[in-house]
Structure formats: structure tokens, C-alpha cells
């Protein structure tokens, strides 16, 4: 297992190198001009002289390969450069904003699992009855509703109409509930539907039938055989959900004035603030890869067939 983890972590190095190259050159292929964005944001007329000065200030006056090498050399030393707009070190800013996003994403993950598992179990146990139809309808809604729209609707209802929760801002749980729910809604709906399907599938398996024939109590059959096996695809999906939840925070943070890294990245994208976009992309790559690794480990722990299989082949 340790060798597996080390191998996966080693793979991260060429992956990050590839991602760094792709993001660096794709950004510059887009035809956008950060020097122009910088001057317009500063209300400075973009004369040739002003553009040349801005390009020099932002380090854009050198050939592209040279810019890449300079940037990469700095990145290896964990220096991600300075934001074009705020003129502050990018890594400091991203690390400043990241905890808020992780806080929000964690609560969203908690909501996703905490709500989807009971819902999925309920639907599976009440197959083709009204709870099942409700959950299936909800899943349909969940994948169709964009999270930013849901965010606005939640604010309208809970903040403007009922005045139960603050509409925006950074703070305790009361500030987190609405944005976390807006982010989590899609994932929890998908998860509930997935669990329902996989539990129904497990119910038809021979080991469940044999367990029942052995006279094992229905409660134990449900929990030890159906639910445990049904949960395996949910764990796999959770790995992807973490990505979705962090991705979802990109837009939702802007709506709720949540000072996270998503909102920071969105404004960087509209300002063509390359150092931030590059750093953000690399950071997200690391987070995705590490989360998926954790899920793989969890998967092996949960399903002996995977664990024993890999040990047998080792």
C-alpha cells in the first residue's frame, strides 16, 4: 500500500509539469492582453508607450519560452509571482483565501453525504413508492438547477423574505449554510440516486439471498450486505464530488461574498491576471489528485476484493 501511495505521489511531478505547460501557453494563446487589462483597470489610456511600460512592469516583454522558464524556476522555489492587479505575492493571497474555500467545501461535503445517504437508503427501501419517486424527482431537479441560481433563490427566501440567515458575508455556521447548500445540492442529489441504484443492485446479489436463507436478520442484511456494498460506488463518486464542490465554490462564493479562493480566481480570470490563474490551476491539480488518492485508499479499505486483489497480484 505504501509503495502504491508513493508511486501515485511521484506521478504528481510530471503531471504538474504538464499542467503548468498547458496552462501557461493556453492562456497566452487566447489572444487576451493582460497589459491592456491592467491599463484599463487603472484608467490609463493605452498609448503605445503605456503598453510598453505595462508589459515591462508585468514581465511580458520577453519571448514566451523565456517567460515560461523564468516563471517555472520561481515556481519550483514556491514563488508564484506577483498579481498583476493587486501587486501582492500570489501564493500569499491564495493561501489567505484557501481556508475559507476549504471550510465551505467541507461543510458542503458533509451536507452531501449527510443528506444523500439517508435519502438514497429511503428511496431504495421504498422502491416504486412515493419516497422513491420523490428522491428520483429531486435528483432530476438537482442536476438541472445551476448552483448560482439556487444560491439567489435561497437568499431571496431565507434572507430577504424570512430573514433567518444573512444574505452574504464571512462568519460562523449561519453564514455558511446557504452557500454550502447551494454548492452541495447537485452532488447530494446525484449521490442519493446513485446509492439507491447500487443498493437495489446489491439486493439482487446472491450473497444477499444467501444471507437471507441463512436466517440473518433483515436489519443485518440491510446494513452489513446491502448498504455496505451499495456504498462503494458512492465513495468513488465522492472523490469526484470534492472536485465539483470546490469548482462549485467558484461561482457561489461571488454570490455570497465569501472570501474564498474561488471568488479570487474568478476576478483573476476576468482581469487576465495570469500569475493567479496559473497558481490556482496548479493548486487545484494537487487537490484533485490528492483527493482521488485518498478515495482510492478508502476504496481498498472498504472493499476487501480490491485490497486482497492488489495484494495477491503484488
Amino acid at each position: 500500500m505504501l509503495a502504491f501511495i508513493v508511486r501515485r505521489l511521484m506521478l504528481l511531478v510530471p503531471m504538474l509539469l504538464g499542467v503548468s505547460m498547458v496552462i501557461f501557453f493556453v492562456l497566452r494563446l487566447s489572444g487576451a492582453d493582460p497589459a491592456m487589462s491592467y491599463l484599463r483597470s487603472a484608467n490609463i489610456p493605452p498609448t503605445d508607450q503605456a503598453i510598453a511600460q505595462a508589459e515591462k512592469d508585468l514581465g511580458l516583454d520577453k519571448p514566451l519560452p523565456e517567460q515560461y522558464v523564468v516563471w517555472l524556476t520561481d515556481v519550483v522555489q514556491l514563488d508564484f509571482g506577483v498579481s498583476y492587479m493587486t501587486r501582492r505575492p500570489v501564493l500569499d493571497e491564495i493561501l489567505y483565501y484557501l481556508p475559507a474555500t476549504l471550510q465551505l467545501a467541507s461543510l458542503a461535503l458533509l451536507l452531501t453525504l449527510g443528506i444523500s445517504i439517508p435519502l438514497g437508503m429511503w428511496a431504495a427501501r421504498q422502491r416504486d413508492k412515493w419516497p422513491d419517486f420523490t428522491v428520483r424527482g429531486l435528483a432530476f431537479l438537482g442536476v438541472s438547477i445551476p448552483n448560482f441560481w439556487l444560491g439567489f433563490m435561497l437568499v431571496l427566501l431565507f434572507s430577504v423574505q424570512l430573514q433567518w440567515l444573512p444574505p452574504m458575508g464571512y462568519g460562523d455556521l449561519e453564514y455558511m449554510i446557504l452557500p454550502a447548500f447551494a454548492i452541495a445540492f447537485m452532488s447530494l442529489c446525484i449521490n442519493a440516486r446513485l446509492l439507491r441504484t447500487s443498493m437495489l443492485e446489491a439486493q439482487g446479489q446472491r450473497y444477499v439471498l444467501y444471507a437471507r436463507m441463512r436466517g440473518v436478520s433483515e436489519r443485518r442484511v440491510e446494513n452489513a450486505h446491502v448498504l455496505r456494498n451499495g456504498l462503494i460506488p458512492v465513495v468513488t463518486a465522492a472523490g469526484m464530488h470534492i472536485g465539483e464542490l470546490i469548482g462549485g465554490s467558484l461561482v457561489v462564493e461571488s454570490i455570497f461574498g465569501w472570501p474564498g479562493v474561488g471568488r479570487y480566481a474568478i476576478s483573476a480570470i476576468s482581469n487576465n491576471d495570469y500569475p493567479i490563474i496559473q497558481c490556482f490551476t496548479l493548486l487545484m491539480t494537487v487537490i484533485f489528485v490528492v483527493c482521488n488518492l485518498i478515495i482510492d485508499i478508502l476504496y481498498a479499505w472498504l472493499d476487501p476484493r480490491v485490497r486482497l486483489g492488489s495484494e495477491a497480484s503484488a
Binding site: A32, D33, M36, S37, R40, P46, N272
Partner: peptide, 8 residues
């Protein structure tokens, strides 16, 4: 157009 391309 995207903002910087518009001004360009």
C-alpha cells in the same frame, strides 16, 4: 469580445 481584446 473579451475585455482586453475589445480595447485592443
Amino acid at each position: 469580445e473579451e475585455r482586453s481584446r475589445f480595447y485592443k
